[in-house]
Nucleic acid binder design. Sequence first.
DNA 1: GGTCAAAATTCATATAGATGAATAGATAAC
DNA 2: GTTATCTATTCATCTATATGAATTTTGACC
Lengths: 245, 245
Amino acid sequence: MSAWKEGSDARLPLYQRLREEIMDRIASGEWPPGETIPTEAELTRRYNIAVGTVRRAIDTLVNEGLLERSQGRGTFVRRPDFDASFFRFFRQVNAAGQSRVPTSRILSASLQTPPPAAAKALELTEHESCICLERLRAMEDGSLLAEKIWLPASRFSGLLEIPLEQFDNLLYPFYEARFGQSIGSARETLTIDSADAATADMLGIAPRDPVVVIERTALGYDRTPLEYRCSMGAAATFRYQIEIS
Amino acid sequence: MSAWKEGSDARLPLYQRLREEIMDRIASGEWPPGETIPTEAELTRRYNIAVGTVRRAIDTLVNEGLLERSQGRGTFVRRPDFDASFFRFFRQVNAAGQSRVPTSRILSASLQTPPPAAAKALELTEHESCICLERLRAMEDGSLLAEKIWLPASRFSGLLEIPLEQFDNLLYPFYEARFGQSIGSARETLTIDSADAATADMLGIAPRDPVVVIERTALGYDRTPLEYRCSMGAAATFRYQIEIS
DNA sequence: GGTCAAAATTCATATAGATGAATAGATAAC
DNA sequence: GTTATCTATTCATCTATATGAATTTTGACC
C-alpha cells in the first residue's frame, strides 16, 4: 500500500522524495495556494514514515519559500510575493520601512502577433497570437514605471472584453481570479539601456537618459510560461542593496 | 558545568543558542575560516545536548552559508566567495559556464584624508587617515571596471611600502595574508549614474554614457568595517538575473 | 618507502517518543 | 447572546538511538 507516485526514485532519501511529492501536489493544484497541506501526523500515516522525516521535507520547502508554517493552525501553501521582490529594486520603502503597492493604470489592451522576445519567452509559434497590455505605474516618490505585458491569448480568452478600468492593481491575483492561472515562480533579467523618445516621454525624462529594463517571465506552478513582461524605469531612481556573507 | 557563554539567553531554544555560540567563535577567530569546527559528538558532550539539536544549529548555519559540511571529514568554516557574487552582475561567464577572475592592475596607492562617504563607511573621524587604492580590472569580454578602494590606515600599516606590482589579483586573501584582516561579510549598493569625463576615459566609453556604480563596505568577522570600495563599469555590459519563487 | 586493506572518525538518514506552545472549536456559565 | 474555560489539534523543541556512507588514519605487508 505505497502512497508514492510512480516518478518517485526509491534511491533518493525519503525526505527528498516526500519533498517532491508535496511539490507535485502543489504544481497540480491539488493543494492550492493559501490552503493547508495535510498535517504532519496525516503525512506520517499516509506515507508510513516518521514525523522527523516529514518535518525535514517540510523544512526544506519552508526554506525555499513554498510553504509557510503556523503553529497550531497547520502548514500552508505560500502565495509568492513578487511585487515585494520587484520593487525592492527601486526606492519604494516608506518611512515605516514597508513598501506600498504603486498605483497603476492600463493604457491599452490589444491582440498581437508576439514580438520575437515574447514569443520565445512564452514558447509561442508565429501563428499563435497573444494579448499585449501597456501599463503605467506611479511610485510613491512620483517616479514612473512603463510596462508592456504579453499573455498567451489561448489561456486568457475574454480578457479583451474586460474594460480597462476593471483591471486590478495587482495582476497576478487578477489572473488567478478571472482566468484560473496561478503564477508560481518567475525569472527576471535586469539590464541598463538608454531611453528612446517614446519611453522618455512616458517616464518624464530626457531622451538618452539611462533606464533600467527588467524583463520577467512568469511561470505557472507547472512551469508553463504564462506572462512575459518588460518594465522600464528611470535609472536615477534605481537602487539595489545586497548583503553577502 | 555549563559551557554556555554569558550572553546566551536561556529563554531561546537550544539550537538557536548553539547557533549564536558558533557564530561568536567564528567572529572571534577562535574557529578560523577554512578550518573545521568541533565534531557533532564533541559539541554534544561540550554543551550536554542531543545530536539532533547540534545538527539543527549547524543546519541553519550551513543554510546561511557560514558553514560547509563534508561527510566523513567534518564541518568547515566557509570562506565567503565575494567575487563570484560580484561578477555575477556582469557578463562574466565563459563558454564553460564558470566565471574567471579578471586581471587587475593597481594604478596608485596613497595616504589620504577620507572623503565623507569613505569616512562614514569605515567609521573614521576626520583626523584618522586612510589608504586609497586606484585599480583597473579587465574583464574577459574586454570591458573594464574602475575601482577606488579605501582602507583604514591603522589596520593596514606598511601597505604603502609594498610595490604596486606585488599586490595580488584578489585583495581579500592578500589582506588576510599580509595584515591578518579577514573579510567576513559585505554590504553592496548598486546604482546607475552618468560617466564623468575622467571615468569615461578610463572605461573607454563616451562621457554621459550610463555607468553602474557598486559601493561596497566589507566587514570583518566581528563586523568592523575594513574596506570601502566604489566600482564603476559601463552599464551596457551589465546584466543581472534573479529567480523568484 | 610505497601500497593495499582494515579500522576509526565523522556526517547523513531515519525512527520513536516526550513535552511545550499556539490556535481553533466546543462547552458551560452568566 | 456573550464570555470564559476547557479540550483537541497542530506545529515547535528536544532527546535518544540505530544504521549507512564518505573520508581519513593506521598498520601490515611487500
